[in-house]
Design a binder for these strands. Structure first.
Lengths: 115, 115
DNA sequence: CACCACAGTATCTTTAAGGATACTATACCA
DNA sequence: TGGTATAGTATCCTTAAAGATACTGTGGTG
């Protein structure tokens, strides 16, 4: 963190990176407050473990708020914090570019998924 | 394209993710055309292998242009393509948010690097 | 009574990403 | 004659991320 070469982009990458975080955030951005399983259902293929760990990290970074209702069966709601809402522009430009990129890749017969 | 589940964000993440890609792109955005070693020197700790593979992937995605000059010693220049320049808004909002986030984390005594 | 939904943990295993190191060719420089 | 710079490959090895699976407690429903 000392040197000038550690760009903000690095920090942003660090906080947002991972296969799931941007998708989780995008969901919360679109839908607002969501319960754990609601979130899980909205993201195909994500496992409980992945969802939990990613949410915990986002919570740690104060990007996501976790509200526990002491009930049985449990009820836990997730939402973007006011602070977390500041990443909406990033998500939106990613969404915009990503959608265009899908089309561009298709037009040029380039695989979006390499390997 | 009406596939609601495969968000553009996913594609964006896929094309931009990795420890190095956003940094490489940010360099090229700031400096313009750069030679291989110039890029390498500007990114501390990156290995040749990492730089090469990341550049190849970006080239594959038509985000980065690679210009080889048939000389000895070799000269290869990298730059953003016109298409690649479309991600500048993403990089800028990431840079902006990331810088603010560093400060926010510092103020709240939260480690940017977990674990 | 058996079973479901809820929101998770706890382990274990797999896979992908990243890193270290050594090596290449060739021209120029001292 | 040896050393430097260039832009890479080719291997091998180490982590970190992701995934699979099983398990928890409890209250309400059929």
């Amino acid at each position: 963190m000392e040197d000038k070469t550690c760009h903000g982009v690095e920090t942003a990458v660090h906080a947002l990176v991972g296969k799931w975080k941007p998708i989780i955030l995008y969901q919360l951005m679109e839908t607002g407050t969501m319960r754990f399983n609601e979130l899980k259902r909205s993201i195909p293929n994500i496992t409980q473990k992945m969802l939990t760990t990613q949410l915990r990290e986002l919570e740690y970074h104060k990007i996501v708020h976790r509200e526990v209702y002491p009930q049985v069966p449990p009820k836990v709601e997730y939402s973007l914090t006011e602070y977390g809402k500041k990443i909406i522009p990033i998500l939106q430009s990613m969404q915009e570019w990503g959608t265009a990129h899908q089309q561009y890749m298709r037009e040029n017969d380039i695989q979006t998924i390499e390997k």
